[in-house]
Design a protein around this nucleic acid. Sequence first.
DNA 1: TGGCTATTTGGCTATATGGCCAAATACGAA
DNA 2: TTCGTATTTGGCCATATAGCCAAATAGCCA
Lengths: 110, 110
Amino acid sequence: MKESLRPRYEARAKILKAMAHPSRLLMIEELQKQERCVNELTEMIGTDTSTVSKHLSVLKNAGLVADDRRANCIYYRLRCPCILDFMGCVEEVLSANAEDHKKMMKSCKK
Amino acid sequence: MKESLRPRYEARAKILKAMAHPSRLLMIEELQKQERCVNELTEMIGTDTSTVSKHLSVLKNAGLVADDRRANCIYYRLRCPCILDFMGCVEEVLSANAEDHKKMMKSCKK
DNA sequence: TGGCTATTTGGCTATATGGCCAAATACGAA
DNA sequence: TTCGTATTTGGCCATATAGCCAAATAGCCA
């Protein structure tokens, strides 16, 4: 790869990687609807608080979420809501995959 | 996480994960322009053929690319071109990050 | 068929990640 | 200041991934 292009692709990959986890996708979706504190997200995900905190730091580190403290909770919110537009296409891929799978099964029966 | 939702998020995460690598992003971008065989991609990326082959199998396994053989090469193509629309938003995040960074630097000087 | 090239697979190592626990920290409120 | 709750961090283990090499496979073409 041309060296000059590498940082660009690495930066993009980092963002995609930050999104590429089931729990983090759930959080992103939730945070698009409304901001949430760590505790609330922990309940939704149903795992250890420390795990959720680490997931959030991945998202924050990628610049996908921002946080601010109010009262004694830290609220997270989605920084670029367009992120969720991704999902339309992701779903398209998934249904294309399902379609293929169906075809394959059919042709196996023959 | 509600058990019924898990498979859905896992499927989505798998697709994002498949995209989340610099070399694979480069390939995806290239394959949107035109189909390419393993050898051509290997040259572009500048790494071992076997590595590229494995990257391609990740993409294929996620349903992002399809391949077919012609003459004695195997040509890969992008299955869902909408995938690249992602990048607009990814870039948006990146420039928001850059903006933040700039602000931070400024406020440090004060 | 047999050779040749393109591609994939297996094996290995180094590195990164997710998850849990325990401990540390941060900060608002009394 | 001190307490108590919310959050983060460090440590550990199990698992996954990238990359390279060597070897196996696949399938065109003479």
